[in-house]
Design a binder for these strands. Structure first.
Lengths: 336, 336
DNA sequence: CTGTTAGCGCATTCAG
DNA sequence: CTGAATGCGCTAACAG
């Protein structure tokens, strides 16, 4: 099956040098006379030599690959995953690392095995649910970085965007446009997944109201799931009472549903009710009018996370630079 | 950094057996007396032993990992990528394989290097543009499978859905509901990417019209890009003339835009104009009314592709089972 | 500057 | 059934 691959010995033989010399030119690890190098390079080219990865990995005790692991299989449905991957790949590729994907994380056993087997050198852990697993991490000596985890303890390498401040910005924005009866459509009140994010967003809402001098009205706060249908249902509930004049949604999907429910009810966006989304995903331009939405640069976040991990793996992570908060911008469009 | 990992020798020492015996129980490669096995297992447990992956890979000349490569970085933006990954992971995991992601493919040099280096055992190539690269593949002896590539030559392992028949089904459907003036909103007429898919879809449209006994009207065929905005623009153009009574779109995004343009024009969906999408992505439920859309099981396709590749790697791919067409179903919703 | 030598951790031949 | 010995392809001391 696998065609016999050429080895360093063959290259050395052909070039009339020792194996060491070949290794030296491959890794630029030692000075080699220009003409010897040339003949080695030539031999490599002719024989189409590529250094065997496994042998290298074994010798160096380094796999040159890292893993990206999501805490919930549902996350793969998120359209941001692909963009995130692209960002990580860019950073990893620049440093010669590979990205291996693990399926969703039930517990750490599989990940720890991969680490112990030397299959990977480190891990990027995305949106871990709070709980014992997260705390176990604090004891780890293995390189890892948390992704999208605002409440990570200090000292733990983390790349995140503050959902809280994103929602706050949305509330500020609609309040600045004179809206006073502001509703909030959030995610599931208690779920294994993303509770944290939900809590963050909810906190952003109450804080935003406080700053705007508005008493957050409990009847204007609705929990839902993160889906379009959930947004429709939640908004319908809000329309059963005196309608709000603005609705801040925890995701773009929810906002899409909200817009539909409002329009189906015979009201107009933004004239009667302003709506904000969250994530600035493509759903934000899938409504008419387009959605005002909180944007964070997913690709860049992936890039940063990978860079952080590499620094950590290579022992070049300086204290104070482990925690990276990515700013969120509110993109204002027609819905407000 | 990396804590010294325990080796087979240490396990052997502790269990009072030879290294061979340990290897035998780890790989179940030879008969071992039950009680010796027990003590070995016990020693492994106590020492927390995991076989070193690199050493194994070197010895067996097998990396136990495969790669998934997209032909265009833009593909990572596609929300289907994540789902696809999940499907592949499921199949790969069941056979002990890892998935490593490569960044977009410019040429094959990087992929071939990975193969030669023994870093991967095979590759899943997604939506390759037609051209010399594709033809080069026919000469490959390395294991690979094409994904989402309807026109692959026979004999080349391929998993795909017939876009053509999907569009045909959409045309059939609206024609069966009495629509006669059917428009088509397609992707870019000539693009490096996905030309093939576009051609396929266009062919599906003309074939569908033929079968319905409708002369395909060139003024009702509009090319665009694959975006929501593109759909809006294309539909606006169609509304400048005598409006169609149905619009078949090449993607859900285009359909979303089309629905907006129609409604903004003061017409109703589906009463005045029926609209169909394609992909049954989440965008299909991001309109009001919801979109009728052609559905294909992305996750299953990923699963199948991975299985095919594994069979190919392990030399268990029987002739006649290399080409797998996944059926497309038309999901009928409110837009028609 | 270059060649010799000794393993890295594991799977596997060949004797026992 | 078990054990000692060999080598996979490469890197890195150590000598020359």
């Amino acid at each position: 099956m696998t065609a016999r691959r050429t080895t360093m010995r063959e290259v050395a033989l052909k070039a009339g040098v020792s194996v060491f010399t070949v290794s030296a030119v491959v890794n630029a690890s030692a000075k080699v006379a220009t003409n010897t190098r040339q003949s080695v390079l030539e031999a490599m080219r002719v024989l189409d030599f590529e250094p065997n990865h496994a042998a290298r990995a074994m010798k160096l005790a380094k796999s040159m690959s890292v893993t990206y692991v999501v805490s919930d299989p549902g996350q793969f449905t998120d359209e941001a995953v692909g963009v995130n991957l692209a960002g990580m790949l860019e950073a990893l590729g620049a440093h010669g690392y590979n990205l291996v994907i693990e399926s969703a994380l039930k517990d750490f056993s599989e990940l720890k095995r991969a680490l112990r087997q030397g299959r990977i050198d480190g891990a990027i852990l995305s949106a871990m649910p709070p709980g014992p697993m997260l705390e176990e991490l604090l004891l780890w000596t293995q390189p890892f970085v948390l992704f999208d985890q605002p409440s990570a303890p200090t000292g733990v390498p983390t790349v995140f965007a503050s959902y809280r401040s994103g929602i706050e910005a949305a509330v500020d924005h609609v309040a600045a446009r004179g809206r006073r009866r502001i509703a909030f459509v959030g995610g599931p009140p208690v779920a294994q997944l993303n509770v944290l994010h939900n809590v963050e967003r909810y906190a952003g809402f109450t804080e935003g109201c406080r700053r705007a001098g508005i008493a957050a009205d409990p009847t204007l706060i609705v929990n839902s799931d993160f889906s379009i249908q959930g947004g429709r249902a939640a908004m319908r509930r809000l329309l059963e009472q005196t309608p709000p004049d603005a609705v801040v949604c925890a995701t773009d999907r929810l906002a899409v549903g909200a817009v539909h429910a409002i329009q189906a009810h015979g009201l107009r966006v933004p004239d009667d009710i302003a709506v904000t989304g969250f994530n600035d995903s493509e759903f934000a331009i899938a409504t008419d009018p387009l959605l005002t939405s909180a944007h964070f640069p997913v690709r860049e976040m992936g890039f940063r996370a990978a860079e952080l991990l590499i620094r950590r793996i290579e022992g070049r992570l300086l204290p104070g630079q482990e925690r990276l908060e990515i700013p969120i911008d509110l993109i204002v469009r027609g819905s407000t």
